[in-house]
Amino acid sequence: MLKKLTIKLTLRSMPLIHQIKYLIKKEMLLEWRSKYALNGILLYVVSTVFVCLLSFISIKPITWNALFWIIMLFSAINAVSKSFLQESKARQLYVYTLASPFALMVAKILYNTFLMLLLTIIALVFYSLVFGFPPQDKGLFFVSTILGSISFSTIFTMVSAIASKAGNGGMLMAILSFPLIIPVLILLIKLSKNALDGLDRSASLDEIGNLLVVNILAIVVSLVLFPYLYRD
């Protein structure tokens, strides 16, 4: 695969859109081979659900909501942090010489968003199989999960790039990303709580707007800053 990438990308003058396409393809192939994130999320969801099942027996909708986002938070941090942390130094260097940093960042964000959407679906299906699906406004709840996947991927992608450059990965990743993700998580929990209670949709416009603004900010800032980060 990497050899193919070399052939396709040797010319950095190649249009950005093609670079992005090949980089996403590479990420997908690597994930499909190891199935690291997919198995990870299954393990997380299954074990959390069993622990909760044994301790709560049945749960109230408000706990359902909080638990769901906690599961999503931890599986997201594992799945997305992998994107930079688990690549070896040598391979990173190799890809950096082939593709432009802009294309690389866009590809990572797009791929991680896709991955998070997939993980959210899997988690949601399994979670609601056991605990039911209480949201009254189902459409709004799905909007909140989609916004959640995008937010997790945009913020964690950049933080994992920073943490991987800093050397010691896992611990730093948690320290750096939790204060950044908490405001987003609060907005998400509020939004999905509104969906859970079946509130009028106009009551949630503030949260949706704010989440979009935070995401756009995070994407723009990471695209601007990554070129400074990617070369040592």
Binding site: K165, P179, L180, P183, N210, L217, A218, V221, S222, L229
Partner: peptide, 20 residues
Amino acid sequence: IAAVYNIFAFPMMVVLLFVL
């Protein structure tokens, strides 16, 4: 790296203190 993180964190700080 610290400069990059600082710039990335600043808009979040603004959101935390003045928007949320």
